[in-house]
């Protein structure tokens, strides 16, 4: 039984014999990779607006990761010459965007703030997705009482303004970053749940899923290779929208003084802290001027959220449906 059949590799052989022709045939064979069963290949083409918006988002994402190392000053160092001062430099360095109400460098605080504002929002959105998708798929697959129960509670939470729920939660538990993340995660999980449940139910009855069933594929294969690739695009665009809502939610709470607590730098609280500077800034000669310390973090939030919405709009306009409108 030690007989060994040694066959030369067929492709190697053929390729050696007739290289050109064979390549053509292989290229044609490649086309058949796009059979209905194959995972759909998505090509993302953005308009110039979308590309510009992606650059803005990428810029802030880089700052989320390395912002604190790039910042010229520490977020809490009060080493400016005065509070609400215009751009100046002293022995500690240069203050390119001036100082805030405690004489801290505005530019550095905006850079540190990216991590707090976007970082907390990202964590909350991930939590919302984890909860929403798990429960949504559970409800879609199990149906019956489980579906009914989860859906009713979900509808009730969804029927309330997010900010109200946030206020109640903070009144009850006090404000801390874990409470913020949990609150935002639970509130926004409700809309993810609805989408995940609807998508799950929708896709489970598609012909190609039935075909996979008939082929004898297991449930994990179906989820991985049939359901997820088809649900990925709607979920990805929804993730963007949800992230925007969470950023707005958390920065609104921070603006009210109920979110991220000072002295941590967060864009929402920075706007609030520095509002007085709009009419109380000072220039190098000591004259009263406008201090833009409240405007820079406000612009940072706006640029981030507008950019994400533009990308989502662009993608849904190109994928044929007004997905953004359906999901808002």
């Amino acid at each position: 039984m030690t007989e060994q059949i040694v066959t030369p590799s067929p492709t190697q052989n053929a390729a050696a014999a007739q290289p050109k022709q064979e390549e053509d045939v292989l290229a044609k064979l490649d086309d058949f990779a796009e059979l209905p069963d194959a995972a759909p290949k998505r090509k993302l083409r953005l308009s110039w607006v979308g590309k510009l918006a992606s650059l803005v988002v990428a810029f802030w994402m880089v700052l989320v990761v390395i912002g604190p190392w790039l910042a010229p000053h520490h977020e809490m160092d009060m080493d400016g010459d005065d509070s609400f001062m215009v751009a100046h430099s002293n022995e500690y360095g240069t203050f390119h965007l001036g100082t805030d109400y405690l004489g801290r460098d505005t530019l550095s605080r905006v850079m540190y703030g990216a991590r707090n504002t976007i970082g907390i929002a990202l964590l909350s959105t991930f939590l919302a997705y984890l909860l929403g998708i798990t429960l949504g798929i559970l409800a879609a697959v199990k149906g019956g009482w489980i579906d009914m129960g989860i859906s009713r509670v979900n509808d009730a939470i969804l029927a309330l303004p997010a900010i109200m729920l946030g206020l109640i939660a903070i009144a009850a538990f006090g404000s801390s970053i874990p409470i913020l993340i949990a609150t935002a995660g639970i509130i926004y999980a409700t809309s993810v749940f609805r989408i995940a449940r609807a998508l799950g139910q929708d896709i489970m009855v598609q012909d190609f899923v039935e075909a996979a069933h008939a082929r004898g594929e297991g449930i994990w294969y179906i989820i991985k290779s049939e359901v997820l690739p088809n649900a990925a695009m709607p979920l990805a665009t929804d993730f963007g929208l949800r992230l925007v809502f969470v950023v707005l939610f958390i920065s609104s709470l921070s603006f009210l003084g109920l979110g991220v607590q000072p002295p941590a730098s967060d864009w929402g609280s920075m706007v609030r802290e520095n509002l007085a500077g709009l009419s109380g800034g000072i220039d190098l000669e000591g004259n009263t001027v406008i201090s833009y310390a409240a405007i820079w973090p406000a612009l940072a939030i706006a640029s981030f959220t507008i950019a994400i919405n533009l990308i989502v709009d662009d993608i849904s306009a190109r994928s044929g449906g007004s997905l953004a409108q359906k999901m808002i």
């Binding site: 707005l248 920065s251 609104s252 603006f255 929402g268 706007v271 509002l275 706006a302 959220t305």
Partner: peptide, 9 residues
């Protein structure tokens, strides 16, 4: 896309 307080500011 922007928070209400941005517009107010």
């Amino acid at each position: 896309s922007v928070p209400e307080f941005f517009i107010a500011t």
